[in-house]
């Protein structure tokens, strides 16, 4: 395992279509930090794709490892840089990865979009993005909770009024 300050961090969900952006991110990291080893925070699904792309050092984010432990592991390695790979042409979503990049304490953070070349992003700018997306997430949660509450009431009433109930139990 590489020691502190000799690592760079790759952050991606490794979705289909992201392959070229991942390659670009890897090329950027290895070119800018030739002596540093690449490690990635991955999910069980993305791990296989990342291994195929030559990233062998993976911190797996799954139900056996809490988010706090993954964040601590990323911070412990003190990466010199982090690259976040986005699925689209704009830096939408990916709040989780942006948060990991911030908490890792990486000196430089790059955004790699599916179109265009990677761009350097300041920590303050990224913090603003994380905060804004956290607010948006709260908005989505409230909207979804409203919809699901309405759906629950309406659908359960319809079900109860319909009678039957021969097969509804567990």
């Amino acid at each position: 395992m590489s020691g502190p300050n000799h690592t760079v961090l790759l952050l991606t969900f490794a979705r289909r279509g992201e392959e070229s952006a991942i390659r670009e991110a890897l090329a950027l990291l290895s070119h800018s930090f030739p002596d540093a080893a690449v490690f990635a925070v991955a999910t069980p699904v993305s791990a296989a794709s990342l291994e195929l792309l030559g990233v062998a050092d993976l911190v797996i984010f799954d139900h056996t490892r809490s988010a706090r432990r993954v964040l601590a592991e990323a911070a412990r390695r003190k990466p010199r840089a982090a690259a976040i790979v986005y699925s689209g042409a704009r830096p939408e979503g990916h709040l989780k990865l942006e948060f990991v990049a911030l908490r890792s304490g990486a000196g430089r953070i790059y955004r790699c979009l599916s179109e265009g070349s990677p761009e350097l992003v300041g920590r303050v700018h990224l913090l603003g993005s994380v905060l804004w997306k956290a607010v948006l997430t709260c908005g989505h949660l409230v909207a979804a909770a409203g919809i699901c509450c309405a759906a629950f009431c309406w659908l359960r009433v319809a079900q109860l009024l319909a009678g039957g109930r021969r097969a509804s139990g567990t």
């Binding site: 969900f13 986005y86 979503g93 709040l95 997306k133 979804a144």
Partner: peptide
């Protein structure tokens, strides 16, 4: 339905289609 609420938040937390 509770899981569907959480599922909706993934638009921002994870993103993508």
């Amino acid at each position: 339905l509770c899981e569907q609420v959480r599922w909706a938040a993934d638009d921002i937390v994870i993103g993508g289609l």
